[in-house]
Design a protein around this nucleic acid. Structure first.
Length: 274
DNA sequence: ACGCGGCCCTGCCGGC
DNA sequence: TGCCGGCAGGGCCGCG
């Protein structure tokens, strides 16, 4: 489940190839990850060009070759990027490999939920430039979050946080972490939040994104033991704040983990931050 | 326009 | 010990 921090971690795996020429390409064009993408164009336009830059935005990644060839990769659920020697033998789930003189830059995705895009244009393609403001950017303000909540007033908070058009890079575990730290019930409707709850949600969103990027995004370090993250998948897991048993149920179409004591369905009066 | 349920995939785990 | 059914989830599509 690569979310924004894991995506940042994987993006950097290809950086060993920066400023090197792509001398050959290996790909399996019939694989689902290439849906609606011309693999012949991709191969023709990347081969012989230099790997110029790499970027991440939420769950999307963008790689530039030469001046105008743009490769987009979405890792889906089980996708990952890795670098290996130039002699690497492709496994059956290595759908795309770009080879420099010294390295193989590999996109591996056993479950095929990932996606590869490609475009040739002087500017980045629209699917990249039209992405919403990153959560850590100055544009992601409290009034902006308030507007999102008002627009999707009848969505449960859990479902809201999973919407990539508003919260780029948030996935299942981050959404649960944010709601747990903000002490908000995942079933609460987005339109029902008080302004102090919106402020709390805003603060936790930004802080969890920052910390995740610093730890996971840097070297896949584990988040602190005080986070729900370390407890949520253990069968019979316990809340690291109140030590009571965690609940699990599908909300917003995804398995959700929360603490019914710390995240009651009706907000506790005078809830103090942390 | 919005909210939701179903579908795509296959590795892995629990139960028999 | 080995097999197999069901679960897991990000995004997209179609329905009401």
């Amino acid at each position: 489940m690569p979310e924004l921090a894991e995506v940042e971690y994987f993006r950097k795996k290809w950086n060993v190839g920066l400023d090197h020429k792509i001398v050959s390409i290996h790909l399996q064009s019939e694989k689902r990850v290439f849906r609606q993408t011309s693999t012949t164009l991709l191969a023709r336009k990347i081969r012989g060009r230099s790997f110029h830059s790499s970027h991440a935005h939420g769950k999307q990644m963008l790689f530039r070759f030469g001046s105008d060839a743009w490769l987009g990769i979405h890792l889906g659920m089980t996708g990952r990027l890795l670098a290996a020697s130039s002699l690497h033998r492709p496994s059956s789930s290595d759908h795309l490999i770009l080879r420099t003189a010294s390295h193989s830059l590999i996109f591996r995705d056993p479950r095929l939920f990932g996606r590869v895009r490609f475009a040739v244009s002087p500017r980045p393609p629209s699917w990249w430039s039209n992405l919403p403001p990153p959560i850590h950017s100055p544009k992601f303000t409290v009034p902006y979050l308030r507007k999102i909540c008002a627009r999707r007033a009848r969505s449960p908070l859990k479902a809201l946080l999973l919407m990539q058009q508003f919260f780029p890079g948030i996935g299942n575990w981050m959404a649960d972490e944010i709601l747990w730290q903000a002490k908000l019930c995942p079933r609460t409707l987005s339109g029902a939040l008080s302004s102090s709850s919106i402020a709390q949600l805003h603060q936790r969103l930004r802080q969890i994104c920052r910390t995740s990027l610093r730890l996971i995004g840097h070297d896949y370090s584990d988040p602190p033991k005080t986070w729900l993250y370390r407890h949520r998948w253990r069968s019979g897991g316990y809340c690291p704040r109140c030590q009571r048993r965690l609940s699990r149920a599908p909300i917003g179409g995804r398995t959700t983990c929360w603490c019914p004591t710390c995240q009651p369905s009706t907000p506790l009066p005078l809830a103090s931050p942390d």
